[in-house]
C-alpha cells in the first residue's frame, strides 16, 4: 500500500465527506428570493413563507450518516503498517525503482517486448536441451565430461626427442625399447610428410590403410609386424642380431620414404 501524502490525507478526510454531505442537503425548493411561477404555486400545496429571520441557522451533518460513513472501509484513511519481512523490506526500494522505470513509455516498451524475448529464449533453450545439443561449446567452454577414475599419462609423439631416446636405448642395449622408439620415429615421419593422419585412437593397421599405393605399404607392413612381435609380444630377450635386422628394415623404409618423396 502506498503512503498517503499529508495534503492528500486532509483532502480525503474532510473534503470528501463534506462534499457528500453537501450533496445530501441540496434543497429542492427554489432558492431564497427567486420568483415562484404560477404553475409551481398551483402544484405546491404549501408555499414556503418568506424568510423573515435574517439570522443563519447552523446546520450539522446527520450524526448517524457520519457514523455510517466513518464505518466504511473506504473512508478509513489509516496507514496500514507493512507486514513484509526483512528481506522484502530490503528489496522494496529496488522494486519501487523498477516500477518507476517501467512506468514510462520506454519502460513499457521494454517490459512488453522483453517479456516475449525471454519467453522465446526459454523455448529455444528447452528445444535445444531436448535435442541434447551441447550448449557449453557455444560459449567456448569445454564440454562437461566426467573424469576418468585414474590418472592417464600419454605421450605426445611430436614432443618427444625420439632421436636422442633411440640413441640412448641402443647404447643401453635396451633393444625392445629401441624397436618401439624406432617405430614411433617412423610414424612421426609419416605424419610429418602427411602420408598418415596421426590420431591417438588409430591402430598401426589403420595407418597401413592410409598409406598411398606403392612400395611403402608393403615395407611398412613388415616394419609393423616386427614392432608388434617385439613390443606387444614382450620379446625382452631380443639379441643384438635381431635388433640389427629390425634396424635395417627401419632404415630401409626411411630411405624409401625419403626417395619416394623426392621422386614425388
Amino acid at each position: 500500500m502506498t503512503a498517503v501524502v499529508p495534503s492528500q490525507k486532509i483532502l480525503r478526510c474532510w473534503l470528501l465527506p463534506a462534499l457528500l454531505l453537501a450533496l445530501c442537503s441540496v434543497p429542492l425548493q427554489p432558492a431564497h428570493g427567486q420568483p415562484v411561477t404560477q404553475q409551481a404555486q398551483k402544484s405546491a400545496p404549501h408555499s414556503i413563507p418568506a424568510d423573515a429571520a435574517a439570522a443563519p441557522r447552523l446546520r450539522r451533518p446527520d450524526e448517524a450518516r457520519l457514523r455510517e460513513l466513518r464505518s466504511q472501509r473506504d473512508f478509513r484513511y489509516v496507514e496500514v503498517k507493512s507486514e513484509q519481512g526483512d528481506l522484502s523490506a530490503f528489496f522494496a526500494p529496488f522494486w519501487r525503482w523498477l516500477a518507476d522505470i517501467l512506468d514510462t513509455p520506454a519502460g513499457n516498451f521494454t517490459w512488453k517486448y522483453g517479456f516475449y524475448a525471454v519467453l522465446v529464449a526459454a523455448l529455444v533453450f528447452a528445444v535445444l536441451k531436448i535435442m541434447q545439443v551441447d550448449l557449453t561449446r557455444a560459449f567456448g567452454r569445454a564440454p562437461r565430461q566426467a573424469p576418468l577414475s585414474f590418472d592417464t599419462e600419454t605421450e605426445d609423439l611430436h614432443a618427444l626427442d625420439l632421436d636422442k631416446l633411440l640413441a640412448q636405448a641402443e647404447t643401453e642395449h635396451s633393444y625392445r625399447l629401441a624397436v618401439r622408439l624406432g617405430y614411433l620415429q617412423v610414424l612421426r615421419q609419416l605424419s610429418d610428410k602427411s602420408l598418415i593422419r596421426w590420431q591417438p585412437d588409430k591402430t598401426n593397421h589403420d595407418y597401413l590403410y592410409e598409406l598411398p599405393a606403392g612400395p611403402l605399404p608393403e615395407a611398412f607392413r613388415e616394419l609393423t609386424r616386427q614392432f608388434e612381435y617385439v613390443w606387444y609380444g614382450e620379446q625382452d630377450d631380443l639379441t643384438a642380431d635381431d635388433y640389427e635386422r629390425v634396424r635395417a628394415t627401419r632404415q630401409a623404409f626411411q630411405r624409401r620414404l625419403t626417395s619416394s618423396r623426392q621422386a614425388a
Binding site: 591402430t203 593397421h205 589403420d206 597401413l208 590403410y209 592410409e210 605399404p217
Partner: peptide, 17 residues
C-alpha cells in the same frame, strides 16, 4: 586379421600376412 578401418581411412590396401 584385417582390422576394421577407422572412419578416417577408406583406402583398401594389401592384406596383412
Amino acid at each position: 586379421p584385417m582390422p576394421q578401418a577407422s572412419s578416417a581411412s577408406t583406402q583398401q590396401t594389401p592384406v596383412y600376412p
